[in-house]
Lab assay of single mutants.
Amino acid sequence: TEDEKKIQELLKRANGDVSKAEKLAQSQGNEELARRLREYANK
């Protein structure tokens, strides 16, 4: 999905570090994506 692409892109930029990727999403003002990242990471 589009969200998964965004999540994978963020994870790439954060070198696979979920908490960093989450902070990136939040810094972009994207709380929804940050929440999805957390769920994605907890799979």
Rank of each mutant, 00 (worst) to 15 (best):
20 K>Y: 12
27 S>P: 01
9 E>I: 07
14 A>P: 01
5 K>P: 06
14 A>V: 10
9 E>R: 05
17 D>R: 03
31 E>T: 11
13 R>K: 10
18 V>N: 02
33 L>E: 02
17 D>S: 06
15 N>A: 07
43 K>R: 12
28 Q>V: 08
21 A>K: 00
15 N>W: 07
6 K>I: 14
14 A>L: 05
33 L>F: 05
7 I>Q: 02
23 K>N: 06
32 E>C: 10
34 A>I: 08
32 E>I: 06
16 G>S: 03
35 R>I: 08
11 L>G: 00
12 K>H: 09
30 N>S: 07
23 K>V: 08
39 E>H: 05
31 E>P: 11
31 E>Y: 15
8 Q>Y: 12
3 D>H: 08
15 N>R: 10
29 G>E: 04
17 D>C: 10
21 A>H: 00
10 L>G: 00
6 K>P: 04
33 L>N: 01
41 A>S: 07
21 A>V: 02
23 K>Y: 09
27 S>I: 11
25 A>S: 02
33 L>S: 01
20 K>A: 13
36 R>S: 05
13 R>A: 13
41 A>H: 08
37 L>P: 00
22 E>I: 15
32 E>A: 09
23 K>G: 06
25 A>K: 01
32 E>L: 08
14 A>R: 01
6 K>H: 09
6 K>W: 14
24 L>T: 04
13 R>C: 14
33 L>R: 00
33 L>G: 00
18 V>E: 02
37 L>V: 10
22 E>G: 04
26 Q>C: 15
31 E>V: 10
32 E>D: 11
18 V>M: 06
15 N>P: 01
12 K>T: 08
19 S>T: 11
9 E>T: 05
12 K>P: 00
14 A>Q: 03
24 L>A: 04
10 L>Y: 12
35 R>Y: 05
31 E>L: 13
32 E>T: 07
9 E>H: 05
8 Q>D: 05
8 Q>M: 14
11 L>P: 00
25 A>R: 02
18 V>K: 03
16 G>C: 14
13 R>H: 07
12 K>Y: 09
30 N>C: 14
6 K>S: 10
6 K>E: 15
24 L>C: 06
30 N>D: 15
37 L>Q: 00
7 I>A: 04
28 Q>D: 13
12 K>W: 11
36 R>T: 04
27 S>N: 09
12 K>I: 10
36 R>L: 15
18 V>C: 07
28 Q>I: 10
4 E>V: 11
11 L>Y: 02
42 N>S: 13
15 N>S: 06
43 K>G: 08
28 Q>P: 02
17 D>T: 02
13 R>S: 08
34 A>G: 04
6 K>C: 14
43 K>D: 08
40 Y>N: 02
36 R>M: 15
41 A>M: 14
9 E>F: 04
42 N>C: 14
7 I>M: 12
5 K>V: 11
4 E>A: 09
28 Q>M: 15
39 E>M: 06
24 L>W: 13
13 R>F: 09
38 R>H: 08
23 K>M: 11
29 G>K: 03
